[in-house]
Design a protein around this nucleic acid. Sequence first.
DNA 1: GTCTATACTAAGATAGAC
DNA 2: GTCTATCTTAGTATAGAC
Lengths: 203, 203
Amino acid sequence: MPATSTRERLVTEAMRLFGEQGYSATSIVQIEAAAGLAPGSGALYHHFKSKQALLDAGIDRQLDRRHAMRDIRALFAGLGDLHAELTMLGRYLLSVLDDESQLLRIAARIPAHQSARLTDARAALFDGLYAELADWITGWAPDLKPETAATLGALGVDALHGRRAAGTAFATPQPGTADEHYLTEWTATLASRIESLRHGDGQ
Amino acid sequence: MPATSTRERLVTEAMRLFGEQGYSATSIVQIEAAAGLAPGSGALYHHFKSKQALLDAGIDRQLDRRHAMRDIRALFAGLGDLHAELTMLGRYLLSVLDDESQLLRIAARIPAHQSARLTDARAALFDGLYAELADWITGWAPDLKPETAATLGALGVDALHGRRAAGTAFATPQPGTADEHYLTEWTATLASRIESLRHGDGQ
DNA sequence: GTCTATACTAAGATAGAC
DNA sequence: GTCTATCTTAGTATAGAC
């Protein structure tokens, strides 16, 4: 990490501290200190108009990263095996949730009305993940009612998110020990439901 | 609601405001005003030593309520039909999450280290719900490895929690329109998995 | 761009009259 | 137990020297 700009360091440290302590509980002084500036000097304000503007910059940076990661999903289409593809899809969904865990942690702690940008970023993430799983399910059970596929997609993503939400309260990304067990059961459960829907179609 | 004590009103209003705005974003002045005391008077401090003590009292009150609700689960044991029992169990789990939504909302917004009592209350709730679903599953598939039952129990509860977590960011308890669809799919998915585990036992 | 110093505001908590 | 008034601390943000 050679020669990052002060502005960049401020965003990085601010988002880290927001994630650990919450937005309002993190002071400008702390952020300045963490970024290597003199704590208490208003040096931060030469880069950002306000604390809110700093948060907005952090959100935008995360959104940029999110866009840069698009179209990875195509990588594991076409294995031809429902169970194998679903396993990879589950792993992928979990990794996305981990990439976004900082933003999710911050969003979870801020009252919804306080930052529309943050609320929107969170909603867009989940809408995307719901749709991703639902689309994949539809590919394997084309005659499924769109509503059923959407609900099952939401259920699958919600389960993974719920799994992370407990650890999301803490700052540490959580050990992956039991992750594999969970993911195995997740795959088996969804696969079982999808299989039964493929035969009893129209549902 | 006749003649509630000032102390009781303070706890009620404080927990409501903590849930809506977060703990640190809610001021003593606001709480006093909401409870019908003169805003800015230290009148609150005749009932509670500090803001933290007020939160603790709110948590304890919720824990008391939780204990008072125990042993309802026995009500829907013994219908004899897996699908029917699971539907009722799902509805019950959702209702518990709704009863606890205020506390969960508050807990989600407070850094974990700031209130061990709150973190513990949250963990105890989920441990209880995980075990409740896992036990029921074990009743229908006795030969299941305890670990598998536990994982599937966690998955089921996590899915319901994830479903509520989106709405949990907001203060409103969320309309129940799509709840039935979700619960129907939840039941079908878990039932499908349990059925398959009953036959391919030992797993 | 970063520093020292400080203005301004709001919060948690206390003292003492009634 | 509740009030008015106030102490103390901490946070956001700004001004001006370097």
